[in-house]
Design a protein around this nucleic acid. Structure first.
Lengths: 339, 339
DNA sequence: ACTCAAAAAGATACCGGTATCAAATTTGGT
DNA sequence: ACCAAATTTGATACCGGTATCTTTTTGAGT
């Protein structure tokens, strides 16, 4: 037969009991916890003692409800498995935790409908702010966000029509710059490896086309290869190039993993890089520096995006009237031996 | 002068207003939302219409507080930047979302004090359950968890003294198995590359030592190299081996990234792998299959760990009296060309 | 049409805090 | 020592829902 060990069955100590033990009112306990400076030193100490003696755990649910102030930030990523987002998440967390905020995470799989569902769920949790690592949203999602009056930051690209604030770089501009860089190095038949169903990869492809146009070249469809995710995709790209456009002299990959996959496939085939084919990557993972040859890459401010996003979000949460800002953090081309 | 646009200043629609529009009581709205089957079809429809007409967003804060049932799960990872956890998180999320649960994430940096702070913060949010990707906890943390009466799952290893439930594999057993595997292949002077300050790497080293003991070999301290994180660590390992124990014929790396770093360094030096030095990894990233030669690795059930953890947690949340279980999901050795 | 159990809807109290304003206490100037 | 102003503490209502119990409605069986 089960025995109750306390009057609240392990459900936790309430603030009231802390107040009683400390000989003050609930309100004073609440103050000691939230605005310690507003409670006299001696009383505060009594409260803290009571808290630790009873093992009291503040109930942030009740606090948020009562004060209409949440301390949770929602973060929506296209994919939880993609390590390039890890840096952003880390930087985000590093800023939020010291400020007393928690991070709620969900995946959108780059599907606006799915994103909409996630946003609805986060709004139901009354998040204090939202970060969306995407710039394509369903109309319903936009309506919800506007209606909820919650600070929002978009991250994955520079959107044409921002919902609220933006911290990002431009995929299109970056891809264009890298393509021009390869051209400047003397490569004249540059191919582009893209990922299907990835809106950021699509933007990058546009940037690639922009560059060719500026160079006075036609976009040769044989040199645009669409491959699957993962290292295998890089190998596919090499195979397709050999089959469809063997005179290609440089390959610009829409993603880091693709670039490594392509390079390793070249290694396997004994193709000289960059002699037979130069390779460049859209993202600069640590791995890029360690493969042989090291891969020329676009360094994107992943960490900075997380940090600035978190900072701007917090600033906005504390001061609703702060102006809306759009920050383009740019990018950097890191030239290495692969091109 | 600011103008209020509505009586609640964008703060959202309350259930009461939905009830009014639908011509029912708040309670009926609540039922229609939480237990639709308990409300008559016709009324339910009226409620749903009112909800969408007003753009009502259910307040899960209030719901959780009132019902003492949270729909948030806390997940504590040693590092947010390590991609090996990504699979676990992904699997976790895939199970939780359809069940209506949200994921809260935080980083412990393998520091029990930091972990303790994170756990306290999660308990304050009244998470319905917690997953800890670690097995070393501060006494205060354990006390808090026991006191909070919250389902907990430990993940990173098979702990000697579990807090509650466990879903993992044994680092020590896996490392021992791989070392024995290398020995069986004929390697007689096996080195071990470890990461400092990583409790899981420490366990793995013990497994390595277990194997040598079983083989009747002494542990040669020259063959235990402690390196820094990242691909660079793998290069360090090769350098140390060359300097301290050049007759080493196999290197077992405590981490995937280390193994790749080591292999790439061998490539650079022109060392034949596995002729000059065999390499094996503790973790089987996709990359392992793509490098040249492909790396022999321990395949750990990262995805399965996430899925089972989430399932067990949910089962426990819905039925408090479920028996506590410890699940050892084991591991698998994937023999490839590097050994 | 009538009975009665089952199903549906409602009234009320409460979840555990905080905002707000009022009351009590302290502080400093003279 | 006395009073006004400032600081500290407390009383009360409310945040937005749900649990629980009660009342009303429904409908099957006769």
């Amino acid at each position: 037969m089960p025995v109750k060990t306390s009057s609240r069955g392990g459900g936790g100590v309430r603030m009231h009991e802390v107040a009683e033990l400390a000989g003050v009112s609930r309100m004073t306990v609440s103050r000691a916890l939230n605005h310690p400076e507003k409670v006299k030193e001696k009383v505060r100490q009594r409260v803290f003692d009571a808290v630790s003696q009873l093992g009291y755990v503040h109930n942030h649910l009740a606090r948020s409800l009562s004060s209409s102030k949440s301390n949770v930030i929602g973060l929506v990523l296209p994919s939880l498995e993609n390590s390039i987002f890890a840096q952003t998440v880390k930087a985000f967390s590093d800023v939020l935790r010291p400020a007393g905020f928690q991070l709620m995470l969900a995946e959108s799989t780059d599907d606006p409908k799915e994103e909409e569902a996630v946003i609805a769920a986060f709004l139901a949790q009354r998040v204090a702010g939202l970060v969306l690592h995407s710039t394509r949203h369903s109309p319903a999602a936009i309506r919800m966000l506007r209606g909820a009056n919650v600070p929002v930051i978009e991250n994955g690209d520079m959107p044409v029509e921002p919902i609220d604030m933006v911290v990002s770089y431009s995929n299109r501009a970056a891809a264009k710059a890298m393509t021009l860089h390869l051209a400047r190095l003397g490569y004249g038949r540059i191919a582009f490896a893209s990922l299907a169903d990835n809106p950021r990869a699509t933007e990058r492809q546009l940037g690639y086309a922009d560059a060719l146009k500026e160079l006075g070249q036609e976009v040769d469809p044989r040199r645009i290869v669409s491959v699957s995710r993962g290292f295998g995709g890089g190998a596919e790209a090499i195979a397709q190039i050999e089959r469809l456009a063997p005179d290609t002299d440089a390959l610009f990959c829409a993603g880091d993993v693709l670039a490594v996959g392509a390079l390793l496939e070249c290694n396997r085939r004994g193709w000289d890089v960059p002699g037979r084919l130069a390779i460049a990557s859209f993202d600069d993972l640590e791995l890029m520096r360690h493969v042989n040859p090291a891969i020329t890459a676009l360094r994107l401010p992943r960490h900075e995006i997380g940090r600035r996003s978190a900072e701007m979000l917090l600033a906005r949460i504390f001061d609703r009237d702060l102006p809306v800002r759009s920050v383009d953090l740019g990018f950097e081309i890191v030239q290495r031996a692969s091109s």
